[in-house]
């Protein structure tokens, strides 16, 4: 075989030198190991083809074949006429990677800007008993980012024997993330009245201090605080925004619980334990049978009374 020229061998791919060196090292390493371990056993009753050492030898052969294949692949890749398509593939790969990263960074930047915006709003004046200006865009932004950037990876088609199980697990992870995002939003809502009440009370105390009025009765101050807090909660809990978030939390909790149950049922199927679904079927049958027996008993009693 004609030896490739230096120009042909010289790789344009940055990883080629390293691959060549690594392949050479493993080739040499494999050769030394073969020499030291595959000496023929003359005492063995069977032929060298059937000896246990042959199995070991086979392993090294397979290793050697693998390395050779790798070497051939690298050499093929490094050939001048293949350089263009390899480079093209690499470019495509980098393009794809850049695209993914680009999209994600764009959304991530948007999310970060939203986060900063929300943080900057902390300390701004908010009106008492008013829950129209609640700033939950941070949660919406997170959900948007999740839905557009992360969720799609969970739903990459699953292949092979474990496809069904992997799909269920992906679904569970997705529903868990969505549920927790809604739950956090709901929990956050419950802190808003506290924040509003504390701010108003602080302003009130500051005002009193400015006027050099001394608050002697801390109990009265507490009563005023709790009354104001109760009022804030009453406004919040009736607001359309709260109800919307509560409903979202209930819906996402239901979805999460259902997908969790599905995964648990799959796991339990492998154990000698009946699943909830199986027991529910039995309970339903029992329920229907009891109803039927009661109906027939009533009918029988009526017939006997006649």
């Amino acid at each position: 075989m004609e030896k490739p020229t230096t120009a042909e061998r010289k790789p344009e791919l940055p990883t080629f030198s390293w691959l060549e060196l690594t392949t050479g090292f493993w080739e040499e390493f494999s050769r030394i190991l073969n020499e030291t371990r595959t000496e023929p056993d003359t005492t063995a009753p069977c032929s060298s083809e059937e000896s246990p050492l042959k199995d070991k030898h086979r392993t090294y052969q397979a290793w050697k074949t693998g390395l050779k294949s790798l070497n051939s692949f690298i050499q093929m890749v490094s050939r001048h006429d293949n350089q263009e398509s390899v480079s093209g593939s690499m470019v495509t790969f980098f393009e794809l990677f850049t695209q993914i990263i680009g999209d994600s960074s764009e959304n991530l930047l948007e999310f970060q800007s939203q986060l900063l915006n929300s943080i900057s709003k902390i300390g701004e004046h908010t009106k008492a008993y008013n829950f129209d200006d609640m700033d939950q865009r941070i949660f919406e932004s997170f959900r948007h980012l999740y839905e557009n950037e992360f969720k799609k990876y969970l739903y990459i088609p699953k292949l092979g024997l474990s496809r069904f199980h992997l799909e269920r697990i992906s679904l569970l992870i997705d529903k868990f993330n969505i549920y927790h995002s809604h739950l956090n939003e709901l929990i956050y809502l419950f802190f808003i009245p506290l924040e509003k009440t504390n701010r108003i009370m602080q302003a009130k105390i500051d005002e009193l201090m400015k006027q050099k009025d001394f608050i002697e009765d801390s109990g009265a101050l507490y009563n005023e605080w709790i009354k104001m807090l109760e009022g804030h909660y009453m406004h919040l809990l009736q607001s359309a925004e709260y109800i919307r978030i509560l409903n979202n939390t209930i819906d996402s909790l239901t979805d999460y619980r259902n997908s969790k149950n599905e995964v648990l049922c799959l796991l339990l199927k492998e154990l000698p334990i009946p699943t909830n679904n199986e027991m529910d079927d039995v309970y339903k049958e029992l329920y229907m049978m009891k109803k039927e027996i009661k109906r027939l008993t009533t009918q029988l009693n009526l017939m006997n009374n006649r």
């Binding site: 419950f190 009245p193 709790i226 807090l229 109760e230 804030h232 909660y233 009453m234």
Partner: peptide, 8 residues
């Protein structure tokens, strides 16, 4: 009524 039932 979180203010009354969980705090007060």
């Amino acid at each position: 009524n979180p203010a009354r039932l969980m705090i007060d």
